[in-house]
Amino acid sequence: MAVPEIRIGSVATKLPGPPVDNARLGTFFRASGVFEQWVEAFIGTRTRHLSMDLDSGEVRFSLADLAEEAARNAMKAAGVAPGDIDVVVMGTSMPDTLLPTTVNVVADRLGIDGVAGYQLQSGCTGAMQALDIAHQMLLTGRHRTALVIGGEMCAKHIDLDLDFGKLSPGEMVNTVLFGDGAGAAVLTVEPVPGAPVLHRVLVRCAGQGKAPGQVVEWFGMGDREEKRSALHEDFKAIEENVPLLSAEALKELLDGQGWRPSDVTWLLPPQLSARMTDRIVSHLGLLQAQEISCVKETGNTANALPFFQLERVLPRMRTGDRAVAVAVESSKWIKSGFVLEAV
């Protein structure tokens, strides 16, 4: 049996609320002037979108809300109905609840039932892992259409009573790095005109012997009163490891396709922060490739980010164009990516 070509039939995204700039965010952490300068110097993010209303503290969107809208719009753009979906896969590091899984809630709202469904608990490579599972399942020939979702909703980690000046460096980063959002894509074996071929998805564990670069705690009935920090990031380790892992992922992706660096038309680099993205792109050295980045405007939306990048690049791809995406997770170090071609 011939191996089917897997195409990205459509992509859609959803951001909650208006953009929140650094000046506005700084007022809530009692560090307006210092805050803005610090963010510009070390992070580079200008705005992000939050599900929480900063004035009232009300959480106005759930992750399921954002994911449902993104998925519904992706399905509409692809011209598929709920009954056409064979597989649903979602990647997120911050689900609404541990149970029920957010992917099941979203599928229920969309009217999708009786199909294979998976939710992956993962950080910045969760979307790649979700794409990988959907891609592999479609390659078997037993399924024809998959809905892949990624998103984050960080309201659980926003504390408007924080005194920014009293935070450790590892905690400071997390107050500004992240934003909320969701994205979805329809993958299909159908020969959709103009839809690029997703040749391969790469996911590799790369953390043997390495300490975690990021830790996100969760609390239950027994330890909910503990005072340990819910979030901690070793930004120095991330600065050191992510460019190296990105280069390794890029080389493996190109070698796997028999492509040379000069063959790449579009580069979708990791989107940890604007400053880190600049450093990674410089390290990768694909000088001829056009960069597709959005983290300055969206903040780090982790598992939603590849969909925002895809949404930007797909309308611009022409026959013969080749795109490579790379993502790295620093929690226990995963390198990942995919290769895409307009044929």
Rank of each mutant, 00 (worst) to 15 (best):
I85A: 04
W38K: 02
G83L: 05
I43K: 02
R48W: 04
T101D: 06
D86H: 11
N22L: 01
G79K: 02
Q37L: 09
W38V: 09
P95L: 12
G17Y: 06
A74N: 05
T101N: 10
H49E: 11
P100A: 07
H49P: 03
T92N: 02
I85Q: 01
P82S: 10
S62I: 12
L98G: 05
S56Y: 10
R72N: 07
V39K: 00
D86F: 08
A23D: 13
T27N: 10
D65H: 01
S32D: 14
V80L: 08
F42N: 12
A71G: 12
M90C: 09
I43T: 13
D55N: 12
V34N: 10
S32L: 09
T102H: 07
A77M: 09
E40K: 04
V20S: 09
R72P: 01
R24G: 01
T45M: 05
N104C: 14
V88K: 02
L15D: 05
R48D: 08
T102V: 15
T27I: 06
V80F: 04
S62K: 10
V39R: 01
G26V: 11
P18G: 06
H49L: 06
A71P: 02
T92I: 05
P100T: 11
P19F: 09
M52H: 04
A74Q: 03
L15N: 07
D21C: 00
T101C: 13
L15V: 11
L99P: 00
R30H: 15
G17R: 02
T101Y: 04
M75R: 00
D86R: 01
V34G: 11
F35T: 05
A81L: 12
A74C: 05
M94L: 14
P16A: 13
I85E: 05
G83M: 06
G17S: 09
V34R: 07
N104S: 13
R24K: 08
L54S: 07
R24P: 00
I85T: 06
G26A: 11
L25V: 08
R48Y: 04
V20W: 09
N22Q: 12
F61Q: 13
P19Q: 09
G83R: 11
K76D: 15
A77L: 12
A23H: 10
E36D: 15
P82M: 05
D55T: 14
V34D: 14
M94I: 15
R30C: 12
